[in-house]
Design a protein around this nucleic acid. Structure first.
Lengths: 189, 189
DNA sequence: GGTCACTATATCGCGCCGATACATCAGAGA
DNA sequence: TCTCTGATGTATCGGCGCGATATAGTGACC
């Protein structure tokens, strides 16, 4: 997931670790924080795999100000051709991880770079997933009184409300996507 | 967190791994699944630490039916004195992990075994945490139009709604707790 | 007799977190 | 001028938990 996010973000511009982390935080908020303890090792891994390369180009005087540093701070990374390719593959490969809480959020944050058809698949897969959760919680909450711990039931009540709300939210998004797709088609014809 | 959950569950009765996992799933639902890949190693660790002991007592003919097995399946664990102590310590030690999404859910699932005072601390800490998130998302959503990616904003909108709803839910819980505490005091006096 | 779903234990690799350490730099305030 | 704080920046370590996978006994249905 972090790999996906890094590759996605580097499409915008070359960046160093700290910046990546901030951008990520802005996009995902508390949904997914990604600590430095995973960020830097992942960067290393991507570097070794050749998916990103160090952008070290002895200063093209272009925004020189940022890197006043002393002896080698700031390591700026940019996407390699292989990295671009890999990101495209990951976009196309819509697995179950794209439907769970964290994976879905990360995927959605990159929807602007995601083909409409794949956006649709993810949105609908997510909806199915949340509907299942909702049904489970529904029956748990309905199976009232008897046996279930009171606090557990409260927990399930909140979960149920969240699920219901998210399904509605997804329905709106899906409707919007469909409307826009139709407009695109009408525009072409 | 898993350690906490296992120790908490074993207060009810001795159990084997599979059963622990099912009970856990029933309590936390999709909030926190805990796979076998973490459950069994954790059980081992707790065993080695002496917090749980194997309950191997050559059949007290008490529910014999369940263990028809052949050659040693089913390893039943029960709490040791140290385990009980440890759980009590973990209950009393309310750190930031008790306020985040997953930790809070697990703690709340064991509220029936948690002193009222600590329940209060956790509830209020969680509320503070969620309010912070809410404020962050609020300003992000309000800072409309300009610059922010459309899908990212949708993500933040949903997050905001969830935060608002959870704060309300927490307020109710806290109010209930306070009411009950008052009743307890009145009853005593 | 087959096969299906459930019960049950276990391991492996690896992604990610939290804590921690260590630097530089900008601005505020004494 | 000095110092302190807070943001910027890179990095490592131990350990938790996940997903995939292997193995196997049990009960029920057809």
């Amino acid at each position: 997931m972090l790999e996906f996010a890094i590759l996605g973000l580097l499409h915008e511009a070359p960046m160093h670790g700290y910046e990546l982390r901030k951008r990520l935080f802005d996009m995902l908020g508390t949904l997914r924080a990604f600590s430095y303890g995973s960020l830097y090792p992942t960067l290393r891994r991507l570097l070794k795999a050749g998916l990103i390369v160090e952008d070290d180009p002895s200063e093209p005087d272009d925004e020189r100000a940022a890197r006043t540093w002393g002896k080698r701070g700031k390591r700026v990374y940019k996407l390699s051709a292989e990295g671009k390719e890999r990101f495209a593959e990951m976009l196309a490969d819509v697995g179950p991880q794209a439907y769970d809480d964290e994976g879905f959020g990360v995927h959605m944050a990159f929807f602007s770079r995601t083909p409409a058809e794949i956006r649709m698949r993810i949105l609908e897969g997510r909806r199915r997933r949340v509907e299942e959760r909702r049904e489970g919680l529904r029956s748990s909450v309905a199976r009232a009184g008897e046996q279930i711990d009171r606090y557990t039931r409260e927990l399930h009540r909140l979960g149920l409300e969240h699920s219901e709300r998210e399904v509605r939210w997804l329905n709106e998004l899906i409707a919007t996507e469909q409307r826009e797709q139709k407009e695109r088609q009408d525009g072409v014809e």
